[in-house]
């Protein structure tokens, strides 16, 4: 019985680890389906044990607006998991705004619009233009502002964490001036 339980813990953890290696988050629904096939009660029980067992310290949980998700910190950082959650939430405005606020706050730097065309965001140009124009009209996102480098590249910053002058100077540095040095 004990062994069976341990195996289940291992299977659950490995399921999460494998998903993280494949750059996916795990949702509770994924545990209910094949091959894990748990019910709600079993899942709660197993998760409690996973989170209290140091052998599974890499298994982490993170919350989106609609769901809880799981990932393994052996294969994915919290910051990357957060990006995936924002994508899962399918609220593009919030995703862009939170990413921009985060970068304006911690680095600090304006966010290169091209970031959203790379993985894991993978927007096309129209999607990004659309999101940026919608941001301008929403009260919640009035802190998100746009700057342009001299080569026309678009950057976004949050004026909660950065002044306009600072964002303009850094945009030009990141996009143009730093490439003139080595």
């Amino acid at each position: 019985m004990e062994k069976d339980k341990k195996d289940k813990l291992m299977v659950t953890a490995d399921f999460v680890r494998k998903a993280s290696m494949e750059v996916r988050l795990v949702k509770p629904d994924d545990f209910f389906a094949e091959p894990i096939s748990m019910d709600q009660e079993q899942l709660l029980d197993i998760l409690e044990q996973v989170f209290n067992n140091p052998d599974f310290a890499d298994i982490k949980t993170i919350h989106g607006s609609e769901s809880q998700y799981f990932y393994s910190s052996n294969h994915m950082t919290e910051s990357y998991a957060k990006m995936l959650v924002r994508i899962e939430d399918k609220d593009l405005l919030k995703m862009v705004a939170e990413t921009v606020r985060h970068e304006s706050k911690i680095y600090p730097r304006p966010t290169d619009g091209k970031l959203f065309s790379t993985s894991p965001f993978s927007f096309n140009a129209e999607q990004l233009d659309d999101v940026v124009s919608q941001l301008k009209n929403q009260e919640n996102y009035q802190d998100i502002q746009e700057t342009r480098a001299s080569n026309g590249a678009m950057y976004l910053y949050s004026n909660r964490f950065m002044t306009r002058e600072h964002a303009i100077a850094l945009t030009e540095w990141i996009e143009v001036l730093q490439h003139e040095t080595s």
């Binding site: 994915m76 950082t77 990357y80 970031l115 990141i174």
Partner: peptide, 21 residues
């Protein structure tokens, strides 16, 4: 330079350019 699952941070000026694709 680009977000990657193993990395906590990324920077568009980085010379760590390798990525999938």
């Amino acid at each position: 330079r680009t977000p990657q699952p193993w990395a906590e941070y990324h920077n568009s000026g980085s010379r760590w350019l390798s990525r999938k694709g």
